[in-house]
Design a protein around this nucleic acid. Structure first.
Lengths: 107, 107
DNA sequence: TTAATCCATATCCGGCTGGTTATAGATTTC
DNA sequence: GAAATCTATAACCAGCCGGATATGGATTAA
């Protein structure tokens, strides 16, 4: 029961929050104002979502004057990619292939 | 805002439910009783989780007498893998590499 | 300095959700 | 047929969560 995976899944489960993250991934660094203008919710709601994303390590913030710039931390998705690979049996298939190869090499 | 991704993330966000799915992925087909004995929750809770997983296409069921066997549908994870690849900019990076390569070949 | 802007926090609220117990249907066993 | 077993559904409840409004702190503009 990896706590990291749990945090990632829970954080990305909400569509509004995931939308914010997607936008940061695609468009790059954005201010809270820009994100609020785009998302269909209030500014406090956006701030709260950004806080959750930051706590999950999915975004980082940079303060500049009275505005805060947020940007996506793509590396934080690594555990998610690993989990998906494990579940889809990616490596299992690879090991089977390796096993076959070794068998053929013996003969 | 893909509805499929939303369903997958929401479904896998709960640790108990995700645990059941992981077990089905690793151990293969399981009856409700076996899953209940393993998970730390009641049998109705397990049944409800299996219903949610099935509605997301993540598991399939097979009836045999008075017991129901569930098995993981790994293919249903494909949209998740795709989404992660998109967000991590996997292809973006590959295209950048290709661009660099072409540039060097020109010179 | 005063006003305006940007963001974060506090507080509250309604709805969703994951859990339980109770129960019923279906099937096997005695 | 009666009892026992397996699973699904119903009904209910507590807690969490995402949303809104209100507000304060910090910074820039007038």
């Amino acid at each position: 029961m990896s706590n990291t995976e749990d945090l990632l899944f829970k954080t990305l489960a909400d569509p509004t929050r995931r939308g914010i993250f997607e936008r940061l991934c695609r468009e790059g660094e954005q201010t809270v104002g820009a994100l609020t203008a785009w998302a269909g919710v209030s500014q406090p709601a956006v701030s709260k979502h950004l806080g959750v994303l930051r706590q999950a390590g999915l975004v980082s913030d940079r303060h500049e004057g009275r505005q805060t710039h947020y940007s996506a931390q793509r590396d934080a998705l690594a555990p998610l990619a690993d989990w998906t690979r494990q579940m889809t049996g990616f490596w299992q298939g690879r090991f089977d292939d390796l096993e076959d190869l070794l068998k053929r090499m013996d003969q």
